[in-house]
């Protein structure tokens, strides 16, 4: 029963990791960009939520009404103003520019909010749970996070396969030069993809801030979890990313059962095992890179 509980908690944690990973997966899919600052943007969203909750006293989930569009706007501006300039055949510019941004965001957050660990208070929601049998309890909040991840991915699938913008995303991903011949402004489409990705990041950051302690320094670790979920799931498949997040969450939960310090290590090791056995991930779609 104890193990079953660990697995259930791991699956729910995987929902959060899937939310971390969805934005990364989306922007890689559309523009082959790997954003090293992704984790720091998650933490930025968490701090924006913190500032708003502290400033206005609203419930963290209500703050999303503001944080999501703000992060989307940041995403659009970031892509239009900086990242579009780095796209091309050479992988170095996007990699090094986003790496630089990662360090900048971390240190600006450090200057503004100090190195203290923070937490978003969500009141009764933090502890409410559904008891199943004697030993297993499913927390309402982790469940909400997991269901949100499923909902977000389903919604993104609809956008990708049922809308004009989604068709433009897929066409641009295939061949951006020919996409331009269709009248698609790649710079605008890329910026919209980043806006969408950071809208999801806003959700992920706020959920993370309610679930765990956070500080300006934890961004890179979130990037690594997101990255691992994407690779385990297979590049270019959003449902695969959800599966990747769940596998990572379960591995961490089981690792923590074995050894108190083993949680994160177990997640990384699970990733490396998948990488060695199935280099293209479990549910690959694109074959690039």
């Amino acid at each position: 029963m104890e193990w079953l509980d660990a697995i259930i908690q791991g699956v729910l944690l995987g929902g959060l990791y899937a939310l971390f990973a969805t934005g990364l997966s989306l922007i890689f899919g559309v523009m082959r960009l790997v954003n090293i600052a992704h984790g720091d943007l998650i933490v930025l969203a968490a701090f924006l939520g913190l500032a708003m909750v502290n400033g206005t006293g609203v419930h963290p989930l209500i703050s999303l009404v503001v944080i999501v569009p703000v992060m989307a706007a940041i995403g659009y501006a970031l892509q239009r103003g900086i990242l579009n300039l780095t796209l091309g055949r050479d992988i170095l510019p996007p990699l090094l520019v986003t790496f630089g941004l990662s360090i900048i965001i971390q240190n600006v957050l450090l200057e503004v909010f100090s190195a203290d660990t923070q937490r978003l208070k969500a009141g009764a929601l933090e502890t409410a749970s559904i008891a199943i049998g004697e030993q297993i309890a499913i927390g309402w909040f982790p469940l909400i996070v997991f269901l949100s991840a499923v909902g977000v991915i389903a919604a993104l699938q609809l956008v990708l396969f049922r809308t004009r913008l989604g068709t433009a995303f897929r066409a641009t991903s295939d061949d951006h030069e020919t996409a331009a011949l269709m009248g698609i402004d790649n710079r605008h489409v890329f910026a919209l993809a980043m806006a969408l990705a950071l809208a999801v990041v806003a959700l992920a950051g706020t959920f993370m801030a309610i679930r765990t302690n956070f500080s300006p320094a934890i961004g890179p670790a979130r990037l690594l979890y997101a990255f691992e979920a994407v690779i385990i799931g297979g590049l270019g498949s959003l449902w695969g990313t959800l599966a990747g997040g769940v596998i990572l969450g379960v591995a961490q939960a089981i690792g923590a059962k074995f050894h108190p310090g083993g949680q994160i290590l177990a997640g990384h090791v699970a990733f490396l095992i998948v990488l060695v056995l199935r280099p293209n991930g479990l549910f690959p779609r694109t074959r690039d890179r």
């Binding site: 068709t167 897929r170 066409a171 991903s173 295939d174 061949d175 030069e177 020919t178 996409a179 331009a180 011949l181 269709m182 009248g183 698609i184 402004d185 790649n186």
Partner: peptide, 28 residues
């Protein structure tokens, strides 16, 4: 002007090698 602006003004190119989008259906 850039390619996407020129198309919107009414010039279309059927490119050499067709260059259909592999991820898109014929109708898309």
């Amino acid at each position: 002007l850039q390619a996407h602006e020129i198309v919107r003004r009414g010039i279309a190119l059927v490119p050499e090698g067709r260059l259909l989008f592999p991820s898109l259906s014929v109708e898309e």
